[in-house]
C-alpha cells in the first residue's frame, strides 16, 4: 500500500507540472493563433493539428524512447532526467494543443466592443489582452480547463509504458510481486477517482465564487 501511495504522490506531482506546462503552451500558441502574422498562425495551426491527430501514447514513445536513439539527448539532460523532462513536455504539448483551442475560443468569445473600448483609451495590444480580454476570457475558460486538467491526470497513467515511475507503474510492480491484480487495480481506480472528483468539486466552487464577485 505504501508503494501505491508513493506512486500516487508521483502522479500528483507529475500532473501539477504538466498542467502548468500545458496552460503555458496553450496560452502561447493561442496568442500565436490569433496573431496578425500568418507565420505565427501557421506554426500554431500545425502544432495543434499534429498533436491532436496522433495518439498521446505514440507521442510519448516517439519523444521519450525514440529521440534518444537518434539524438544525444541523454547526454544533454542526463540519463535519468531526460525521460522525466521529455515525458512532462510531451504531455504538456499534447494537452496544450487542446488548451490552445480552449483559450482561443475563450478570447474570441469576448465581445469585440471590449477590445475597441480598450484601444480607444490608448491601450496597446498587450495591455488590452492583459487587462481587458484575458480576465474576461478566463472566466469562460474555467469549465473546459478543469476538464482538461482531469484529462491530464488520467493521461499520466500512460507514462508507465514508457518507463516513467508513477502510480500505474508502481501498481504493476506490486502486482508482479503479489499477484493481487484485482485488489490493486481497484485501489488505483479509487485513488484516481478521488483526485479527479476533488479537482472538479474545487473548480465548481471557484467558478461559483467568480460569478458572485465579478459579474
Amino acid at each position: 500500500m505504501d508503494v501505491i501511495l508513493e506512486g500516487l504522490k508521483l502522479t500528483i506531482e507529475f500532473s501539477i507540472v504538466t498542467i502548468i506546462l500545458e496552460v503555458i503552451f496553450g496560452l502561447i500558441f493561442a496568442l500565436m493563433r490569433l496573431s496578425k502574422l500568418s507565420v505565427l498562425r501557421g506554426i500554431s495551426t500545425v502544432y495543434v493539428e499534429i498533436f491532436r491527430s496522433t495518439p498521446l501514447l505514440v507521442q510519448l514513445f516517439f519523444i521519450v524512447l525514440g529521440l534518444p536513439a537518434v539524438l544525444p539527448v541523454n547526454d544533454w539532460f542526463g540519463q535519468t532526467t531526460y525521460p522525466l523532462v521529455a515525458a512532462a513536455v510531451t504531455i504538456g504539448l499534447n494537452e496544450g494543443a487542446y488548451v490552445t483551442e480552449i483559450i482561443r475560443a475563450g478570447i474570441l468569445g469576448v465581445d469585440r466592443g471590449q477590445k475597441e473600448a480598450a484601444q480607444s483609451i490608448g491601450m496597446t495590444g498587450f495591455q488590452t489582452m492583459r487587462y481587458i480580454i484575458l480576465p474576461q476570457a478566463f472566466k469562460r475558460m474555467i469549465p473546459p480547463l478543469v476538464n482538461q486538467a482531469a484529462q491530464t491526470i488520467k493521461d499520466t497513467s500512460l507514462l508507465a509504458p514508457v518507463g516513467v515511475i508513477e502510480m500505474v507503474y508502481m501498481a504493476q510492480t506490486v502486482i508482479s510481486a503479489t499477484y493481487k491484480a484485482f485488489q490493486i487495480w481497484t485501489v488505483v481506480a479509487i485513488l484516481y477517482f478521488i483526485i479527479i472528483f476533488t479537482v472538479s468539486k474545487v473548480a465548481a466552487y471557484l467558478e461559483r465564487r467568480f460569478q458572485v464577485d465579478k459579474r
Binding site: 466592443g113 475597441e116 473600448a117 480598450a118 484601444q119 491601450m123 474576461q136
Partner: peptide, 21 residues
C-alpha cells in the same frame, strides 16, 4: 503609433462597451 494618438481622442460607443469585469 495609434495607441499614442488615441490618448488624445476619446470615444463613446453606441453599445457603451464598459469593461464588464
Amino acid at each position: 503609433k495609434l495607441h499614442e494618438l488615441r490618448k488624445n481622442v476619446g470615444m463613446v460607443f453606441q453599445q457603451f462597451n464598459l469593461f464588464k469585469h
